[in-house]
């Protein structure tokens, strides 16, 4: 086996080796990430940076403006916190959710049906699973950047009162991962754009009712149970615990919820991969 292989022969050789899911996965997700990075470089940076302003503006407007009306609120463990400190972690969880859902539903669906990028990628030795995972990773990377920036703002405003707050960054990525994986799975069932519009629209009540702006104790207990089954509530609670360093078994429970959600979403996505890409 001493023959000299050209780069193209090596590439062919590598794909001939056994690997899991050989019909849909080539093990070259890195190329998808590289492309994302290349595209960002030639794009307007303003658009990337602007994504960070949304949660910050929300925090400023609601935290201070509304805070003047609301006063202090009961935080995790029953301690009174300012309204800004109460909603800041919720804003971070919500922005992680919104970004991930948008990227994995509208964005992916648009590229699949109208954009030509995925079509071009799938003409090469990339498999659909490489493309899907690469797309999720890119969304998570963006989420990571926003989370770091948001946490810096929180710290500057004195809203993060514990070193545990640093864990809000990986927590944001975990929340985004869960939503992105499920979003991608849901997209595989979508036939038309309008159906995804409705998914985006369903995010609104989830945002409004998941203890983001006020505690769920104002609801009857049946409604509370329903909200507690929804993912965003777990994300908000997880963030709130970390922000003040109030860690309990419940904190771990919330994190587990998202781990399970991620696993489920990835499983559905993998199973539906052919339906999603090879139609």
């Amino acid at each position: 086996m001493s023959r000299e292989l050209s780069p193209t022969q090596l590439a062919v050789e590598r794909l001939a080796r056994p690997r899991p899911a050989p019909g849909i996965w080539s093990g070259n997700m890195v190329a998808v990430l590289e492309r994302g990075w290349q595209a960002i470089k030639t794009q307007n940076w303003g658009i990337i940076i602007s994504g960070f302003f949304e949660p910050v503006l929300y925090l400023l407007a609601m935290g201070w403006g509304l805070g003047a009306l609301v006063g202090e609120v009961e935080g995790p463990g029953g301690a009174k916190v300012s309204y800004a400190a109460y909603i800041a972690p919720a804003m971070l969880a919500t922005s992680a959710m919104n970004g991930a859902i948008y990227d994995s539903t509208m964005n992916v669906f648009f590229k699949l049906n109208f954009g030509k990028l995925y079509q071009a990628m799938l003409q090469t030795s990339l498999g659909p699973l490489d493309v899907a995972l690469g797309e999720i990773m890119l969304a998570l990377f963006r989420g990571l950047l926003y989370a770091v920036a948001f946490l810096a703002v929180m710290a500057a405003l004195g809203l993060a009162t514990s070193w545990w707050a640093l864990l809000m960054v990986p927590a944001a990525v975990l929340i985004a991962f869960g939503f992105a994986a499920v979003g991608m799975g849901v997209t595989s069932f979508a036939q038309r754009f309008q159906q995804l519009d409705l998914i985006m629209f369903a995010m609104l009540p989830m945002f409004l009712f998941s203890a983001t702006l006020y505690p769920i104790s104002v609801y009857p207990s049946a409604v509370q149970l329903f909200i507690q089954a929804l993912p965003l509530w777990h994300g908000v609670e997880l963030m709130r615990h970390l922000a003040v360093g109030h860690l309990t078994w419940a904190t771990l429970g919330h994190a587990t919820y998202f781990t399970a959600m991620t696993a489920l979403g990835l499983w559905v996505t993998t199973v539906r991969m052919r339906k999603l890409f090879l139609r």
Binding site: A11, S26, A39, Q119, A120, Q123, T124
Partner: peptide
């Protein structure tokens, strides 16, 4: 593969289109 309708990558320059496409094949 040369598809019926061109599906070049609008976000990349002409040369980058070739290089990036090669990366999808795992070429260095």
């Amino acid at each position: 593969v040369v598809p019926q309708q061109d599906n070049l990558d609008d976000d990349l320059k002409v040369r980058e289109n070739l290089i990036m496409y090669g990366r999808y094949f795992g070429l260095p």
